[in-house]
C-alpha cells in the first residue's frame, strides 16, 4: 500500500538540463519519486509522494534537484511557532 499525503504542496524541483542520469536520486528516495528516463536523465514520476526529506537534493552532485527539506511533524511546527526553543519534537511525536 502506498500512502499519499496532500496534493500539489511539495517544494521539489527538478532541472533536467543539469541531470546526468547518475541515478543517485532514484537510489536514495524512500518514496520512489524518481524513475529513469532513458539514458542520461531521470524524471519525476510521483511528485505527490515526496516527503521533502531532502536526500535527493543533498546527494545530487550536479545540483539538479532542489527541495526545502524539513520534517512533516505537526507537533514540532506547533512548538516552533510557540517559540519553545531547543527541541524539535519534544517527547511527543517522532516516536
Amino acid at each position: 500500500m502506498k500512502f499519499r499525503y496532500l496534493k500539489n504542496v511539495v517544494t521539489l524541483a527538478f532541472d533536467a538540463d543539469r541531470c546526468n542520469g547518475c541515478g543517485t536520486c532514484i537510489e536514495v528516495c524512500p518514496q520512489g519519486v524518481f524513475v529513469p528516463a532513458g539514458k542520461g536523465s531521470v524524471t519525476v514520476a510521483d511528485r505527490d509522494a515526496c516527503l521533502e526529506c531532502g536526500a535527493c537534493a543533498r546527494n545530487c552532485a550536479r545540483g539538479a534537484v532542489s527541495v526545502r527539506p524539513g520534517v512533516g511533524c505537526a507537533y514540532a511546527i506547533l512548538m516552533s511557532k510557540l517559540k519553545r526553543k531547543g527541541s524539535c519534537c519534544g517527547d511527543a511525536c517522532c516516536p
Binding site: F3, Y5, V9, Q31, C50, L51, R68, C73, I77
Partner: peptide, 9 residues
C-alpha cells in the same frame, strides 16, 4: 510526525 510520508509543506 510519526508517519513516513508527510512533507513539511
Amino acid at each position: 510526525g510519526s508517519s513516513t510520508y508527510t512533507s513539511l509543506s
